[in-house]
């Protein structure tokens, strides 16, 4: 009972931290807004209907941006803010456990990331019947989870919000740009196949061009492999210093 109370309290606190931080909250709206804007611009030349290749491009852009900038920063920045304002130590010396804080920190960002992934499909006017499948749901959720755990890693390493952004940028370059640029370069395309965001964009590309997506062994290995790696890195860092280094 008390553990449930503690988790509820952490969830409540994290929601307050996230919802009152404009820098964090603007992320999902910016992603959706950017996709809408691009769609309007592209659509103005094609009477509002986008050719599949442009729909694929928009989907890639929206999903990658959501998974990276929103997933990473929502978790990472909120932990960094707690360090900056010296509330993290207060919380961790109040009998909240590491696991409770972990769940509390990723719960809302995870929901947001998955929800925005779905919103992007509708905003892009992508073929919903091809995308809204159990495979998409699974891939989308696992990718959002990886993204949130990477956010936790960023949060553990960062001293403050600015530092969190600095740590997040190189990771965003890798996980966001490589899949987006995959269509322009063979090398990028090859690397992209080994990134969790690459699996998501591959699925999006396939569906946008009207081909039903089937999950491959490589895709599953990449997704679950990176999920395990990110958890291991997180645990290693947590074991060394907890959430905050002394």
């Amino acid at each position: 009972m008390n553990n449930r109370n503690k988790l509820t309290a952490v969830l409540q606190l994290k929601w307050l931290c996230i919802s009152t931080n404009k820098a964090i909250m603007i992320g999902p709206f910016l992603t959706i807004g950017m996709v809408i804007l691009f769609r309007l611009i592209y659509g103005s030349n094609t009477n509002g209907t986008l050719p599949p290749v442009l729909t694929a491009l928009l989907l890639n852009l929206g999903l990658s941006m959501n998974l990276c900038s929103d997933g990473f920063s929502m978790v990472g920045t909120s932990i960094a803010e707690e360090k900056e304002k010296h509330t993290l130590r207060a919380l961790m010396t109040s009998s909240v456990t590491g696991v409770q804080y972990f769940i509390g920190s990723i719960f809302f960002p995870f929901l947001f990331t998955v929800a925005v992934n779905f919103a992007i499909i509708f905003v892009c006017d992508a073929p919903v019947e091809l995308l809204l499948t159990p495979a998409f749901l699974l891939i989308s959720m696992v990718a959002a989870l990886i993204s949130c755990i990477i956010g936790m890693i960023i949060g553990i390493c960062a001293k403050d919000q600015m530092n969190a952004n600095l740590i997040a940028y190189p990771l965003m370059m890798v996980f966001m740009l490589i899949p987006i640029l995959g269509d322009l370069s063979t090398l990028m395309n090859k690397i992209s196949a080994f990134l969790f965001t690459g699996v998501v964009t591959k699925m999006a590309n396939s569906c946008a061009t009207g081909t039903p997506y089937s999950v491959t062994a490589l895709d599953l290995s990449v997704l679950f492999g990176e999920l395990i790696i990110s958890i291991l890195i997180f645990l290693l860092l947590y074991k060394r210093n907890g959430y905050e280094k002394d």
Binding site: C17, T87, A90, T93, S95, T97
Partner: peptide, 17 residues
């Protein structure tokens, strides 16, 4: 963590929300 149910800690820079 359960020890913090029996003790109170005010650090030199304890923050508030």
């Amino acid at each position: 963590a359960s020890i913090y149910e029996k003790i109170g800690v005010v650090a030199d820079n304890s923050g508030i929300y």
